[in-house]
Design a protein around this nucleic acid. Structure first.
Lengths: 150, 150
DNA sequence: GTGTGTGCAAATAGTTTGCATTCGG
DNA sequence: CCGAATGCAAACTATTTGCACACAC
Protein backbone atom coordinates (compact mmCIF):
# COMPACT_ATOMS: atom_id res chain seq x y z
CA UNK A 1 0.00 0.00 0.00
CA UNK A 2 3.11 2.14 0.54
CA UNK A 3 1.43 5.57 0.48
CA UNK A 4 -1.72 7.48 -0.35
CA UNK A 5 -1.00 7.91 -4.04
CA UNK A 6 -0.48 4.19 -4.38
CA UNK A 7 -3.62 3.41 -2.45
CA UNK A 8 -5.73 5.78 -4.54
CA UNK A 9 -4.41 4.34 -7.80
CA UNK A 10 -5.05 0.76 -6.67
CA UNK A 11 -8.59 1.57 -5.61
CA UNK A 12 -9.25 3.32 -8.90
CA UNK A 13 -8.07 0.26 -10.83
CA UNK A 14 -10.31 -2.00 -8.80
CA UNK A 15 -13.27 0.35 -9.04
CA UNK A 16 -13.06 0.26 -12.82
CA UNK A 17 -13.12 -3.52 -12.86
CA UNK A 18 -9.44 -4.37 -13.34
CA UNK A 19 -7.66 -6.99 -11.32
CA UNK A 20 -5.14 -6.02 -8.68
CA UNK A 21 -2.25 -8.25 -9.65
CA UNK A 22 1.27 -8.47 -8.31
CA UNK A 23 2.89 -6.76 -11.29
CA UNK A 24 0.36 -3.95 -11.28
CA UNK A 25 0.83 -3.31 -7.58
CA UNK A 26 4.61 -3.32 -7.98
CA UNK A 27 4.40 -0.82 -10.85
CA UNK A 28 2.02 1.49 -9.00
CA UNK A 29 4.16 1.35 -5.86
CA UNK A 30 7.26 2.17 -7.82
CA UNK A 31 5.57 5.17 -9.43
CA UNK A 32 4.09 6.32 -6.12
CA UNK A 33 7.43 6.17 -4.35
CA UNK A 34 9.37 7.77 -7.17
CA UNK A 35 10.23 11.37 -6.45
CA UNK A 36 11.76 11.98 -9.88
CA UNK A 37 10.01 11.54 -13.19
CA UNK A 38 11.17 8.14 -14.42
CA UNK A 39 11.17 6.94 -18.00
CA UNK A 40 10.29 3.45 -19.20
CA UNK A 41 13.77 2.06 -18.69
CA UNK A 42 14.04 3.37 -15.13
CA UNK A 43 10.60 2.03 -14.30
CA UNK A 44 11.43 -1.40 -15.69
CA UNK A 45 14.77 -1.56 -13.91
CA UNK A 46 13.32 -0.26 -10.66
CA UNK A 47 10.51 -2.77 -10.60
CA UNK A 48 12.77 -5.67 -11.49
CA UNK A 49 14.58 -5.01 -8.23
CA UNK A 50 11.41 -5.83 -6.29
CA UNK A 51 9.67 -8.11 -8.74
CA UNK A 52 12.41 -9.89 -10.71
CA UNK A 53 10.13 -11.99 -12.89
CA UNK A 54 8.29 -9.11 -14.52
CA UNK A 55 8.43 -8.70 -18.30
CA UNK A 56 8.75 -5.55 -20.36
CA UNK A 57 5.45 -6.23 -22.10
CA UNK A 58 3.62 -6.11 -18.78
CA UNK A 59 5.17 -2.76 -17.94
CA UNK A 60 4.18 -1.36 -21.33
CA UNK A 61 0.66 -2.71 -21.02
CA UNK A 62 0.23 -1.46 -17.46
CA UNK A 63 1.51 2.03 -18.18
CA UNK A 64 -0.81 2.18 -21.18
CA UNK A 65 -3.72 1.13 -18.99
CA UNK A 66 -2.92 3.65 -16.27
CA UNK A 67 -2.66 6.41 -18.87
CA UNK A 68 -6.00 5.45 -20.37
CA UNK A 69 -7.66 5.41 -16.96
CA UNK A 70 -6.24 8.86 -16.25
CA UNK A 71 -4.27 7.62 -13.25
CA UNK A 72 -0.93 8.34 -14.85
CA UNK A 73 0.39 11.34 -16.77
CA UNK A 74 3.08 11.29 -19.43
CA UNK A 75 5.23 14.31 -20.14
CA UNK A 76 7.66 14.81 -22.99
CA UNK A 77 10.95 16.60 -22.48
CA UNK A 78 13.84 17.27 -24.84
CA UNK A 79 11.67 16.54 -27.90
CA UNK A 80 11.57 12.79 -27.53
CA UNK A 81 11.91 11.61 -23.97
CA UNK A 82 8.73 10.28 -22.37
CA UNK A 83 8.54 10.53 -18.59
CA UNK A 84 5.78 9.42 -16.24
CA UNK A 85 4.20 10.65 -13.03
CA UNK A 86 1.16 9.52 -11.05
CA UNK A 87 -1.62 12.07 -11.14
CA UNK A 88 -2.59 13.82 -7.96
CA UNK A 89 -5.97 15.54 -7.59
CA UNK A 90 -6.11 19.25 -8.48
CA UNK A 91 -2.42 19.42 -9.16
CA UNK A 92 -1.79 21.71 -12.09
CA UNK A 93 1.92 22.08 -12.47
CA UNK A 94 4.56 22.16 -15.17
CA UNK A 95 8.17 21.09 -15.41
CA UNK A 96 11.48 22.87 -15.41
CA UNK A 97 14.23 20.76 -16.92
CA UNK A 98 17.92 21.44 -16.30
CA UNK A 99 19.77 21.48 -19.61
CA UNK A 100 22.95 20.55 -17.74
CA UNK A 101 22.14 17.61 -15.49
CA UNK A 102 18.56 16.81 -16.61
CA UNK A 103 17.20 17.23 -13.10
CA UNK A 104 13.52 18.13 -13.25
CA UNK A 105 11.57 20.21 -10.76
CA UNK A 106 7.95 21.26 -10.82
CA UNK A 107 6.57 24.78 -10.79
CA UNK A 108 3.02 25.76 -10.10
CA UNK A 109 2.75 29.15 -11.76
CA UNK A 110 0.99 28.91 -15.07
CA UNK A 111 -0.12 32.00 -16.91
CA UNK A 112 -1.84 30.13 -19.69
CA UNK A 113 -5.33 30.65 -18.35
CA UNK A 114 -4.82 34.40 -18.74
CA UNK A 115 -4.42 34.14 -22.50
CA UNK A 116 -6.54 31.06 -23.09
CA UNK A 117 -9.78 32.96 -23.75
CA UNK A 118 -7.98 35.43 -25.99
CA UNK A 119 -6.65 32.57 -28.09
CA UNK A 120 -10.10 31.01 -28.21
CA UNK A 121 -11.58 34.27 -29.49
CA UNK A 122 -8.94 34.73 -32.16
CA UNK A 123 -8.71 31.15 -33.36
CA UNK A 124 -12.25 29.88 -32.70
CA UNK A 125 -10.76 26.71 -31.28
CA UNK A 126 -12.19 25.52 -27.96
CA UNK A 127 -9.14 24.88 -25.82
CA UNK A 128 -9.20 21.84 -23.57
CA UNK A 129 -5.66 21.35 -22.38
CA UNK A 130 -2.07 22.46 -22.72
CA UNK A 131 1.48 21.42 -22.05
CA UNK A 132 4.30 23.69 -20.93
CA UNK A 133 7.89 22.78 -20.25
CA UNK A 134 10.67 25.21 -19.41
CA UNK A 135 14.41 24.61 -19.89
CA UNK A 136 17.37 26.17 -18.16
CA UNK A 137 20.30 25.62 -15.82
CA UNK A 138 19.73 24.57 -12.23
CA UNK A 139 21.70 26.44 -9.50
CA UNK A 140 24.26 23.64 -9.25
CA UNK A 141 24.93 23.59 -13.02
CA UNK A 142 25.19 27.39 -13.15
CA UNK A 143 28.02 27.02 -10.63
CA UNK A 144 29.68 24.24 -12.57
CA UNK A 145 29.56 26.36 -15.68
CA UNK A 146 31.39 29.18 -13.86
CA UNK A 147 34.07 26.73 -12.74
CA UNK A 148 34.54 25.32 -16.23
CA UNK A 149 35.22 28.75 -17.59
CA UNK A 150 37.78 29.25 -14.81
CA UNK B 1 15.18 28.30 -54.78
CA UNK B 2 11.38 28.15 -54.46
CA UNK B 3 10.97 30.87 -51.82
CA UNK B 4 12.74 33.04 -49.29
CA UNK B 5 12.77 30.50 -46.50
CA UNK B 6 14.39 27.95 -48.80
CA UNK B 7 16.91 30.48 -50.03
CA UNK B 8 17.86 31.53 -46.50
CA UNK B 9 18.30 27.93 -45.37
CA UNK B 10 20.45 27.05 -48.38
CA UNK B 11 22.68 30.07 -47.86
CA UNK B 12 23.04 29.24 -44.18
CA UNK B 13 24.14 25.69 -45.03
CA UNK B 14 26.68 26.96 -47.50
CA UNK B 15 27.93 29.67 -45.15
CA UNK B 16 28.67 27.04 -42.52
CA UNK B 17 30.71 24.98 -44.95
CA UNK B 18 28.26 22.26 -45.93
CA UNK B 19 27.72 21.18 -49.51
CA UNK B 20 24.54 22.08 -51.32
CA UNK B 21 23.57 18.70 -52.70
CA UNK B 22 20.49 17.57 -54.57
CA UNK B 23 18.96 15.72 -51.62
CA UNK B 24 19.55 18.62 -49.25
CA UNK B 25 17.98 21.11 -51.64
CA UNK B 26 14.98 18.83 -52.14
CA UNK B 27 14.50 18.45 -48.39
CA UNK B 28 14.81 22.18 -47.74
CA UNK B 29 12.42 23.00 -50.57
CA UNK B 30 9.89 20.53 -49.25
CA UNK B 31 10.07 22.02 -45.77
CA UNK B 32 9.93 25.58 -47.11
CA UNK B 33 6.85 24.88 -49.23
CA UNK B 34 5.07 22.91 -46.55
CA UNK B 35 2.29 24.88 -44.91
CA UNK B 36 1.50 22.19 -42.36
CA UNK B 37 3.94 20.73 -39.85
CA UNK B 38 5.07 17.46 -41.43
CA UNK B 39 6.50 14.47 -39.60
CA UNK B 40 9.33 12.24 -40.80
CA UNK B 41 7.08 9.97 -42.86
CA UNK B 42 5.39 12.87 -44.64
CA UNK B 43 8.72 14.49 -45.36
CA UNK B 44 10.17 11.28 -46.75
CA UNK B 45 7.10 10.55 -48.89
CA UNK B 46 6.87 14.15 -50.10
CA UNK B 47 10.49 14.30 -51.15
CA UNK B 48 10.37 10.93 -52.89
CA UNK B 49 7.79 12.43 -55.22
CA UNK B 50 10.38 14.92 -56.48
CA UNK B 51 13.56 13.02 -55.80
CA UNK B 52 12.71 9.31 -56.10
CA UNK B 53 16.17 7.96 -55.39
CA UNK B 54 16.55 9.47 -51.93
CA UNK B 55 17.08 7.17 -48.95
CA UNK B 56 15.64 7.40 -45.45
CA UNK B 57 19.10 7.69 -43.94
CA UNK B 58 19.76 10.85 -45.90
CA UNK B 59 16.53 12.40 -44.67
CA UNK B 60 17.38 11.51 -41.07
CA UNK B 61 20.91 12.84 -41.42
CA UNK B 62 19.78 16.04 -43.10
CA UNK B 63 17.05 16.80 -40.57
CA UNK B 64 19.58 16.18 -37.81
CA UNK B 65 22.01 18.56 -39.46
CA UNK B 66 19.39 21.28 -39.96
CA UNK B 67 18.33 20.96 -36.33
CA UNK B 68 21.92 21.24 -35.17
CA UNK B 69 22.51 24.31 -37.32
CA UNK B 70 19.38 25.89 -35.88
CA UNK B 71 17.72 26.11 -39.27
CA UNK B 72 14.97 23.69 -38.36
CA UNK B 73 12.76 23.39 -35.28
CA UNK B 74 11.19 20.21 -33.96
CA UNK B 75 7.99 20.27 -31.96
CA UNK B 76 6.37 17.41 -30.08
CA UNK B 77 2.61 16.99 -30.04
CA UNK B 78 0.42 14.29 -28.50
CA UNK B 79 3.27 13.04 -26.30
CA UNK B 80 5.23 11.27 -28.98
CA UNK B 81 4.78 12.77 -32.41
CA UNK B 82 7.73 14.77 -33.73
CA UNK B 83 6.90 17.46 -36.27
CA UNK B 84 9.23 19.84 -38.10
CA UNK B 85 9.16 23.42 -39.29
CA UNK B 86 11.79 25.70 -40.81
CA UNK B 87 12.74 28.52 -38.47
CA UNK B 88 11.90 32.04 -39.44
CA UNK B 89 13.69 35.00 -37.85
CA UNK B 90 12.09 36.52 -34.74
CA UNK B 91 9.11 34.23 -34.92
CA UNK B 92 8.07 33.24 -31.42
CA UNK B 93 4.89 31.24 -31.72
CA UNK B 94 3.30 28.12 -30.30
CA UNK B 95 0.95 25.48 -31.61
CA UNK B 96 -2.71 24.73 -31.16
CA UNK B 97 -3.53 21.14 -32.06
CA UNK B 98 -7.07 19.98 -32.87
CA UNK B 99 -7.87 16.88 -30.85
CA UNK B 100 -10.41 15.92 -33.50
CA UNK B 101 -8.71 16.21 -36.89
CA UNK B 102 -5.09 16.90 -35.81
CA UNK B 103 -4.97 20.13 -37.78
CA UNK B 104 -2.38 22.46 -36.28
CA UNK B 105 -2.43 26.25 -36.30
CA UNK B 106 0.01 28.69 -34.79
CA UNK B 107 -0.69 31.34 -32.22
CA UNK B 108 1.57 34.21 -31.28
CA UNK B 109 0.37 35.11 -27.80
CA UNK B 110 2.69 33.74 -25.19
CA UNK B 111 2.39 34.81 -21.60
CA UNK B 112 5.39 32.86 -20.42
CA UNK B 113 7.71 35.85 -20.28
CA UNK B 114 5.41 37.39 -17.67
CA UNK B 115 6.04 34.58 -15.21
CA UNK B 116 9.52 33.61 -16.30
CA UNK B 117 11.35 35.91 -13.89
CA UNK B 118 9.05 34.88 -11.05
CA UNK B 119 9.92 31.23 -11.67
CA UNK B 120 13.61 32.11 -11.85
CA UNK B 121 13.40 33.84 -8.47
CA UNK B 122 11.57 30.97 -6.81
CA UNK B 123 13.52 28.10 -8.33
CA UNK B 124 16.96 29.69 -8.85
CA UNK B 125 17.10 28.09 -12.27
CA UNK B 126 18.16 30.36 -15.14
CA UNK B 127 15.52 29.81 -17.79
CA UNK B 128 16.66 29.64 -21.39
CA UNK B 129 13.75 28.29 -23.35
CA UNK B 130 10.29 26.82 -23.16
CA UNK B 131 7.74 24.82 -25.12
CA UNK B 132 3.99 25.32 -25.05
CA UNK B 133 1.35 23.41 -26.94
CA UNK B 134 -2.39 23.82 -26.57
CA UNK B 135 -5.03 21.23 -27.43
CA UNK B 136 -8.68 21.66 -28.33
CA UNK B 137 -11.32 21.33 -31.03
CA UNK B 138 -11.11 23.42 -34.19
CA UNK B 139 -14.30 25.18 -35.36
CA UNK B 140 -15.01 22.45 -37.92
CA UNK B 141 -14.68 19.64 -35.38
CA UNK B 142 -16.83 21.50 -32.85
CA UNK B 143 -19.55 21.45 -35.51
CA UNK B 144 -19.03 17.77 -36.27
CA UNK B 145 -19.32 17.02 -32.58
CA UNK B 146 -22.72 18.77 -32.43
CA UNK B 147 -23.91 16.76 -35.43
CA UNK B 148 -22.76 13.47 -33.91
CA UNK B 149 -24.79 14.12 -30.81
CA UNK B 150 -27.83 14.82 -33.03
C1' DG C 1 -13.82 -22.41 -12.42
C1' DT C 2 -13.47 -18.57 -15.67
C1' DG C 3 -11.53 -15.16 -18.03
C1' DT C 4 -8.29 -11.46 -17.35
C1' DG C 5 -3.47 -10.77 -16.96
C1' DT C 6 1.29 -12.38 -17.52
C1' DG C 7 5.78 -13.84 -19.45
C1' DC C 8 8.14 -15.14 -23.23
C1' DA C 9 9.49 -14.84 -27.91
C1' DA C 10 8.62 -13.34 -32.31
C1' DA C 11 7.11 -9.59 -35.06
C1' DT C 12 6.98 -4.87 -36.16
C1' DA C 13 8.37 -0.05 -36.32
C1' DG C 14 11.65 3.55 -35.96
C1' DT C 15 16.31 5.13 -36.17
C1' DT C 16 21.39 4.70 -36.60
C1' DT C 17 25.65 3.00 -38.55
C1' DG C 18 29.34 0.95 -41.81
C1' DC C 19 30.93 1.07 -46.15
C1' DA C 20 31.56 1.35 -51.21
C1' DT C 21 30.31 4.73 -54.52
C1' DT C 22 28.98 9.38 -56.14
C1' DC C 23 29.32 14.12 -56.69
C1' DG C 24 29.88 19.22 -55.26
C1' DG C 25 33.39 22.57 -54.85
C1' DC D 1 40.64 15.56 -57.70
C1' DC D 2 39.42 15.02 -52.74
C1' DG D 3 36.67 14.66 -49.07
C1' DA D 4 32.04 15.20 -47.79
C1' DA D 5 27.56 13.22 -48.76
C1' DT D 6 24.66 9.49 -50.39
C1' DG D 7 22.20 4.98 -50.88
C1' DC D 8 21.89 0.62 -49.45
C1' DA D 9 21.72 -2.93 -46.12
C1' DA D 10 22.62 -4.45 -41.75
C1' DA D 11 22.47 -3.38 -36.96
C1' DC D 12 20.33 -1.66 -33.20
C1' DT D 13 16.60 0.12 -30.16
C1' DA D 14 11.95 0.61 -28.83
C1' DT D 15 7.39 -1.07 -28.78
C1' DT D 16 3.58 -4.32 -29.96
C1' DT D 17 1.47 -8.72 -30.59
C1' DG D 18 0.25 -13.92 -30.34
C1' DC D 19 -0.20 -17.46 -27.47
C1' DA D 20 0.12 -20.97 -23.66
C1' DC D 21 0.04 -20.71 -18.86
C1' DA D 22 -1.01 -18.55 -14.25
C1' DC D 23 -3.62 -16.31 -10.98
C1' DA D 24 -7.20 -12.85 -9.04
C1' DC D 25 -11.75 -12.89 -8.20
Amino acid sequence: MINNASKAAQEELKRKGYKLTGPRIAIINYLAESQEHPDMQQIFAGIRAEYPGIGMATVYRTLGLLLELDILRAITVNKNQLLYELKKPDDHHHHLVCTGCSQIIEFGSCSFKHISSEIETVTRYSIEDHTLEAYGLCPQCQGDFQVERG
